[in-house]
């Protein structure tokens, strides 16, 4: 290896001299753990923003769908406006997730195996969403009326999303994603029992709580990573000073 993309930067001699020395074993173990937490924190820093964005999208989006008829006759949102708000919020959440996901993985090159897994997983979202639309169309042809379609579509999409969260958790060994997926499947199955329009309220609150809860949990997790990192960093620094 003769030349990295260093942009011609000269080695910082002082840093090399210092970094070439070992510390005491307990400080080296702390440094090791510290570095891995730091990388995890930097790589996962986007997760809370994605979760909070989806939490708001579900809460407000399904909330708007509920408000079409949920508080009638005192209050009601026009059908077109509610659907527009719902679609815009979901589109924004997809956009934010894509942007932050791509940004977080910049400079990371996956193995061919995991690239294939990721591509198939991504395509499965589209395949599933289109299949549900096709399935719903077929049910309509076979006599599903508008009231039943109001139950079928949100339930089917939420159920599919929940299953996909579980699959994502299994692929990338992320327990929180499995929990979120299980919760999402549960509310998808429970919500239809409340009937129209209350099922939208159940999805709004249930889904909103799921995402916002996971968002808050990931903020707490990242803060604890940072706290442990700064704790061991200061311990390591003081250890280095005492050695010097």
């Amino acid at each position: 290896m003769t030349n990295h993309d260093t942009g011609g930067a000269a080695p910082a001699d002082h840093d090399i001299d210092h970094d070439d020395e070992p510390l005491a074993p307990e400080q080296m173990l702390a440094l090791l753990n510290d570095q891995q937490r730091s990388v995890q924190g930097q790589m996962g820093g986007f997760v809370p923003i994605i979760m909070l964005t989806w939490g708001v999208a579900w809460l407000v989006g399904f909330g708007c769908l509920w408000l079409i008829d949920g508080l009638q006759p005192e209050f009601g949102i026009p059908l077109g406006l509610a659907i527009a708000v719902f679609c815009v919020l979901i589109a924004v959440a997809i956009g934010v997730s894509t942007f932050l996901g791509v940004r977080s993985s910049r400079g990371i090159r996956a193995s061919s195996g995991s690239s294939f897994t990721g591509a198939v997983y991504g395509m499965t979202w589209w395949v599933g969403c289109l299949a549900i639309a096709g399935f719903g169309g077929a049910l309509a042809v076979n006599g599903m009326d508008r009231e039943l379609a109001n139950i079928f579509y949100p339930t089917a999409y939420v159920l599919f999303s929940g299953v996909m969260f579980i699959v994502a958790g299994a692929i990338w060994r992320a327990v929180p994603s499995v929990v979120l997926g299980g919760w999402t499947v549960l509310i998808a199955v429970i919500a239809p029992y409340f009937g129209y329009p209350t099922h939208y309220l159940v999805l709004a609150i249930g889904g909103g709580i799921g995402f916002l809860g996971l968002g808050i949990a990931s903020i707490i997790h990242l803060r604890s990573l940072r706290a442990k990192t700064s704790g061991t960093a200061s311990a390591t620094a003081s250890g280095a000073q005492s050695r010097g």
């Binding site: 993309d5 440094l31 090791l32 570095q35 891995q36 990388v39 995890q40 790589m43 910049r106 400079g107 990371i108 090159r109 996956a110 193995s111 061919s112 195996g113 995991s114």
Partner: peptide, 13 residues
């Protein structure tokens, strides 16, 4: 330690 956080086969620029 940083490189070990990635799966085998994954690389970092």
């Amino acid at each position: 330690a940083a490189l070990a956080t990635r799966e085998p086969g994954e690389s970092i620029a």
